[in-house]
Design a protein around this nucleic acid. Structure first.
Length: 520
RNA sequence: GCGCCCGUAGCUCAGGUGGAUAGAGCACCGGCCUUCUAAGCCGGGGGUCCCUGGUUCGAAUCCAGGCGGGCGCGCCA
């Protein structure tokens, strides 16, 4: 799992513009501010302020262009400030993701792709195969362009095809600019170079350094272009057997161009090994947008839309840390109320597990083709279809086995090991036999469901399955008691059945990255 | 204009390769805690599966055409 760090883009440039021209800071000043808490929140706000500042006077946009240029060409102090800010923000990002149990194998820095001339090499490959060529005519004269396949799902823009033009002439091939007439590379060009490297057809590699520690204590690797940072020994990155680009559906067109570039540049097999994992965008419900202080004018275009698009430029969005903090605070209140004797540290740890479960389940419960209108109140719910509901089922199951052990000295392993000594009454003779069978059979589908979820890239399938299994468990939990069952054979078989369900449900939660607390 | 996605209960959403009275959560109404944790369970009301045609013994599901909504189609990233 790699995280692409866009350290040479417009967003970094805008923050640098804000730091220097709105805040009047130099590198030392920025260093001091960066040590204060929540530097990431500070930059988030500053970014929105810079956007407003540009809006007040469009000529200020020249500062962005100049800053972008200086960052790309390593000209200090701009480049030094940009690099410093990018690194600090990445570190705060890692902390935030770490709270959710997410980390990466490698951080890939866009700046390194530029400095190591990946683009120059990819450009050679594309030129050699004729995938891109220098356009000499028309409005794209002087640009290196790629012809867009019709099946790439790209349509001509309305302006390019006047209505008066009839069929015969309208079929002129469409072209995508890869290198601008001023010699700079477009975003998709840089992405092509990166993609070629990922699939091992570029013929070049990054240098590597360690950036910090992963959640398990192993080194976290990052690319570098500096000899003094590069380590001789490092894991192998790139040259993947297959790649999956997780990126939202709005970039489907560019991702299609990427596949096309691979194929046309002589690597049809690599092209086939690449998948765009496209997911729909996450927007905000009107209620949540309102809560965040965004109130579209009555009768305006924004007010009429079914949701409110998040926008970093407007400073409109929900920060992951804020969401987690609220979830944990809410969970902590409940945990403390239900378990007053629990030490504070344990309660805190449990609340964190619940909060993380709530976020993770919420993120995958929707199928990826559906626009999510994020609603904070809905996300904060621990009832019904939620992460904590799933955890609750397993906690209950664990309690049964804990008490079974405390009272009868029977472990889960004992139950299964001695099962043959007991008549399977609970499965054939008992009046509730079908209910127990049903939930056991449902639990047995886990592998199949995981296979389907991975094959179709639809994680909601697993989420829905796990939720349904937890529902079935809860129903059986109420209907078929274990500890209070007097018949030894029925008790043993019920324990065995629910033990299996517990095992499968715990595994399903594990796949979703959700821990099960000791109690809740 | 062209491409992709969405349209199922008041709201938010499930419904792999067609199959029986279309499901869940939330919300609403009514029950269940001296009984393995009530973050739960049981019951109830609530649907023209956007529309029209087609394929089929059978369509929410497949096909065609509409309608409504979202997104995309830059020498931005």
């Amino acid at each position: 799992m790699q995280n692409y760090i866009d350290d040479t883009g417009v967003q970094v440039a805008d923050v640098v513009v804000g730091l220097r021209h709105l805040e009047g800071l130099d590198l030392d000043g920025v260093r001091r501010i960066a040590d204060s808490p929540r530097f990431d929140y500070y930059c988030w706000d500053l970014y929105a302020r810079v956007t407003e500042w540009y809006d007040e006077d469009k000529t200020r946009l020249q500062l962005r262009a100049a800053t972008l240029h200086e960052i790309e060409h390593g000209q200090d102090p701009t480049a030094a400030i940009g690099a410093f800010v990018a690194e600090r923000i990445v570190r705060t990002h890692l902390v935030t993701m770490g709270r959710l149990g997410i980390d990466y194998d490698l951080l890939t820095w866009e700046g390194d792709i530029l400095r190591l001339q990946f683009w120059a090499r990819a450009f050679e490959l594309l030129k050699a195969t004729g995938a891109v060529f220098l356009q000499s005519q028309g409005k794209l004269a002087g640009c290196w362009v790629m012809t867009i396949d019709d099946d790439a799902g790209v349509a001509p823009d309305a302006d390019a095809t006047p209505a008066s033009t009839e069929a015969a002439e309208a079929e002129e091939p469409r072209e995508k600019v890869i290198v601008r007439s001023n010699g700079t590379v477009t975003y998709v060009g840089k992405d092509m170079a990166y993609q070629f490297w990922k699939l091992g057809v570029l013929g070049r590699d990054f240098r590597y350094r360690t950036f910090g520690q992963r959640l398990d204590g192993q080194p976290l690797w990052a690319t570098t272009s500096r000899d003094d940072q590069a380590l001789a020994a490092h894991p192998a990155f790139g040259a993947a057997a297959a790649t999956v680009n997780v990126i939202d559906v709005r970039q489907a067109y560019l991702q299609q161009l990427l596949k096309q570039a691979l194929a046309v540049a002589g690597h049809p097999e690599a092209s086939r090994l690449h998948t765009h994992f496209a997911y729909e965008m996450v927007a905000l419900s009107h209620a949540t947008a309102r809560e965040l202080g965004f109130a579209p004018a009555e009768g305006s275009e924004d007010a009429a839309k079914p949701f409110v698009e998040v926008s970093g430029r407007k400073g409109l969005g929900v920060k992951a840390d804020d969401l987690l903090d609220r979830l944990i605070a809410k969970a902590l209140g409940e945990v403390a109320r239900r378990n007053p004797e629990l030490p504070a540290a344990d309660a805190r740890r449990t609340a964190e597990q619940l909060g993380v479960a709530a976020v993770r389940y919420f993120m995958i419960k929707y199928s990826r083709t559906k626009v999510i209108a994020f609603d904070i109140d809905e996300a904060l719910s621990f009832e019904g279809e939620s992460g904590p509901y799933l955890q609750y089922a397993v906690v209950r199951a664990n309690n049964i086995f804990q008490k079974l052990f405390d009272r009868d000295g029977l472990s889960a392993a004992d139950v299964t090991a001695t099962l043959g000594e007991h008549a399977p009454t609970a499965l054939v003779g008992d009046e509730h036999a079908d209910r127990l069978w049903d939930v056991v059979l449902e639990a047995g589908r886990l592998d199949e469901v995981v296979e389907q979820a991975t094959r179709t890239f639809e994680l909601a399938v697993l989420a829905k399955y796990a939720f349904g299994l937890a529902q079935s468990f809860n129903a059986v939990y109420h209907a078929l008691p274990v500890l209070k069952e007097d018949r030894e054979d029925v008790r043993r078989w019920r324990a065995a059945g629910l033990g299996y369900v517990r095992h499968q449900l715990t595994a399903a939660l594990g796949v979703m990255g959700i821990d099960v607390p000791a109690r809740m």
